[in-house]
Design a protein around this nucleic acid. Structure first.
Lengths: 200, 200
DNA sequence: GGAAAGTCTGAATGGTGGTTCACTCCTTCC
DNA sequence: GGAAGGAGTGAACCACCATTCAGACTTTCC
């Protein structure tokens, strides 16, 4: 064996991979999955198209990685807010607010995660993502019911509705033009979500 | 001029076009937009691929027509229910029920209209479709507010949320397997929607 | 320094699917 | 009946991308 990867070399490769993922994420957030060709992504990362295949076996694999990273961050943040100690209804409101604020702050990415047309592999990932969101919301709703703060209801359905409602409000051009300010939109959305769950 | 279209001929062409649209709609409902190739649609209609271009200038034009027809029917039905005379809150509940029931009865089509990946032209049509749905719901919500039956709120946002909520609950695999019955799901969804709008 | 073993490149390859077009078949009208 | 012109056909065409691969360039290790 005349070649063993030196730690520096390993780090360099790792960094290149991360850089590629980061650039791909930007491209996707800007132009959507369908326009994010291998060439476009490679160009953005400053490498040749062929080099993408040093890091990922296929375009789909890269896309899935991009999705997982971004979605994972979101789920994690939401999970922390919802799992904090305190009144379930308060936490639900704060969770909605965080979910919505983050989406509004990075609309492109939010759109990519929630709605933008994508290849099947990413679509499957997205289902999982929504399911995880749903599970988080459902848990808090159930807690609220147990405490008597929320009326009897199917937590799963309410959770799905919350995800859908926030997604719909955000994805469509409601928040951009002459519409309400971000803060007003967040207030309205939070109030709506609490009504939706049946909070007084 | 040695050829003027006879009425019978015109009717025959019209029928062929309608037949093509109907078959295309079925194909789309069954396999989604992305799998509905020109060849697949033509096969379903029993004509050659090239013949599609006798009726439509491009695949996108056919897709848009298919979408418009189906979406138009839905908007019309919902519009009738929501515009009926009577208590706004009642009408809202009935509207949600109709929206949801129709979607559950033809899941494939509902999925195609609401969520399935599609080419940009169809995507644009879909935005319009959702906007029309929103406008219908928003009008009823505003009526409810004016009558004092619903609390103060931004009708547009509530309407968007209702659309998103119903869509999310329906599109994802919530209603198919061991989940609740259709009727139970409809009840739950209606209750949720009314809570969402702030009905007592 | 130089051989071995990578990494990187980007033009060529291949598959997919919408669109075209030369041709056949059918309807109209004299 | 037959000329004129539209409708229908389906194989060929073409554009678009993901993917590959032979060669150029780099790094490792003796």
């Amino acid at each position: 064996m005349a070649y063993r990867k030196t730690p520096a070399e390993v780090r360099r490769l790792e960094a290149a991979r991360e850089h590629l993922i980061a650039c791909a994420t930007s491209v996707v957030a800007e132009v959507g999955w369908s326009q994010a060709s291998v060439t476009a992504v490679a160009d953005a990362a400053g490498i040749a198209a062929g080099s993408v295949y040093q890091h990922f076996p296929s375009k789909a694999a890269l896309a899935v990685e991009v999705f997982r990273r971004a979605a994972g961050r979101e789920v994690e943040v939401l999970g922390e807010v919802l799992a904090a100690p305190g009144d379930p209804v308060d936490r639900l409101g704060r969770g909605i607010r965080v979910f919505a604020r983050r989406a509004l702050e990075n609309r492109g990415l939010a759109h990519a995660l929630l709605a933008a047309p994508a290849e099947p592999a990413v679509g499957a990932e997205r289902l999982d993502f929504r399911r995880r969101y749903r599970a988080l919301f459902a848990a808090v709703v159930r807690e609220g019911i147990a405490e008597g703060a929320l009326p009897e209801q199917d937590g799963e359905i309410t959770a799905a509705a919350l995800t859908g409602a926030v997604g719909e409000v955000l994805v469509d051009p409601l928040g951009s033009p002459g519409g309400p300010t971000t803060e007003a939109l967040l207030d309205e959305l939070t109030a709506l979500a609490l009504r939706c769950a049946g909070a007084p």
